[in-house]
Amino acid sequence: MSEGTDNTEEILLDVRNLTVSYDGIPAIKGISFQVKRGEIFTLIGANGAGKSSTLRALSGLIRHGGEVIFSGENLRGIPADRIVARGLAHVPEGRGIFGNLTVLENLRLGAWLRRDRRGIQADIERVLDVLPRLRERLTQPSGTLSGGEQQMLAIARALMSRAKMLLLDEPSMGLAPKLIADIYRVLREVHAAGTTLLLVEQNANLALGLAHRAAVLETGEIPLCSDSATLRASPEVQRAYLGA
């Protein structure tokens, strides 16, 4: 809890004392952090630090202890399929693309809760303008896309819900540097369009370059949390995560 109480900006996501355990073994040991509306926040940490578990708890995929307050509402006990409706969209680890559905169908599923057909069509067009590769493959089964294209599709699909906030689980995983740069360009555009981002990354360099603020997650705890520049300069972070 390095955040002061003096901030007057609106808190969009307030995580208080979050705990997650698997078969009684604690994976997240009571972490707290806040994400302000309109910012990019990142959780960095090694494999197994609990990054994915945190995101899965936030979007209701796994049970958790503690409080998750999103947009002023406590999400405790709300099932995953109702949390999306509140404006919190999750781009899961490994992309979670439905490979047997076409690219277009994946996008339509992302807009499942919306009833405004025109708005959906307009959003599909907008997404495809930003990601022209997807337009060429619109009617292909999405399983035939390359890894980078699948990641683009996963982000596009989450945007189709008109989420206030995106949870991104290692969007750079397994991609070539050129594709990672593309993904991060898209994330910047998404953020510029007004979406708050909570990004989880193993690649601390990348994430700290994009985010305004960051927290280090280590074996289910947050030892450090501050603005990205400070974190970058911290000797511990340099040694452990930036390979300096």
Binding site: D81, V84, A89, G96, F98, E105, R108, L109, W112, S161
Partner: peptide, 19 residues
């Protein structure tokens, strides 16, 4: 569409807002 998505990967389907 939702049925085929469940058949492919039921764990990810709730993230679309689908029960």
């Amino acid at each position: 569409m939702a049925l085929r998505a469940v058949a492919f990967d039921a764990k990810t389907v709730p993230l679309m807002g689908i029960s």
